[in-house]
Amino acid sequence: MDIDAWVWWLIGAAALGIPLVLTAMPEFGMLSVGAVAGAVTAGLGGGTVLQVIVFAAVSVALIAVVRPVAARHRSQRPELATGVDALRGRTAVVLERVDASGGRIKLAGEIWSARSLDTSQSYEAGREVDVVEIDGATAVVM
């Protein structure tokens, strides 16, 4: 009961797929694709040396090309801001005087507690201010 080389390559590809699922490291997936390429080479009658070369070449090429692209996509911020991230940079209207110790603003149709970013600044009712950040349930404005 002799098992063909291409079957061993497919077993190797499946074995490399297990850590891919468990660790979410895409490199294992790229090695697994390389093993499938080795299986195809074996199935087409390529020798052992050629199978290993194809495995290595495909794996290295995928890691060299796909990994930087994936890292670039992972580091990009999402274009759609939600929650408090969507409130940063918005304009609000002062309802009650806002200074370093507090106040109230109307932001996105809701009333928020607010404080000024610059402790020496104060903003009177009716004035428009820009939201710099959200600190807990308080908008920091300038």
Rank of each mutant, 00 (worst) to 15 (best):
E27S: 11
M30L: 15
S113L: 10
V65I: 13
A56H: 00
G34M: 05
R74K: 09
G38C: 08
I105Y: 07
L107S: 05
V49L: 08
L16G: 02
A108N: 10
Q121L: 12
L44Q: 05
I105T: 02
G103V: 10
V94K: 06
A71P: 04
V33I: 11
L107V: 02
V140Y: 00
V52L: 13
L22P: 00
I53K: 00
S116V: 00
M1H: 07
A15S: 13
A70M: 14
V54T: 05
F55E: 04
G45M: 06
R74A: 13
I63F: 08
W6I: 04
G45S: 08
R72I: 09
L31I: 01
L87E: 07
P19K: 00
L16D: 01
G45F: 04
V131S: 04
I63E: 05
G12C: 08
S122H: 05
R90G: 09
E79T: 05
T138L: 08
A42S: 08
V49T: 04
R127L: 09
A71S: 10
V69M: 15
I63S: 12
V66W: 05
F28K: 00
T138P: 12
G83D: 05
V7W: 15
L16M: 09
W9K: 03
D118T: 04
D135L: 08
R72T: 13
V54R: 04
A139S: 08
A92Q: 09
T41G: 13
L80D: 12
E128M: 13
L22T: 03
G46A: 14
M142C: 00
V132A: 12
A81E: 06
A125Y: 05
V131Y: 00
V54S: 11
R88C: 01
P68M: 10
I111R: 09
A137Q: 00
V131L: 02
F28W: 01
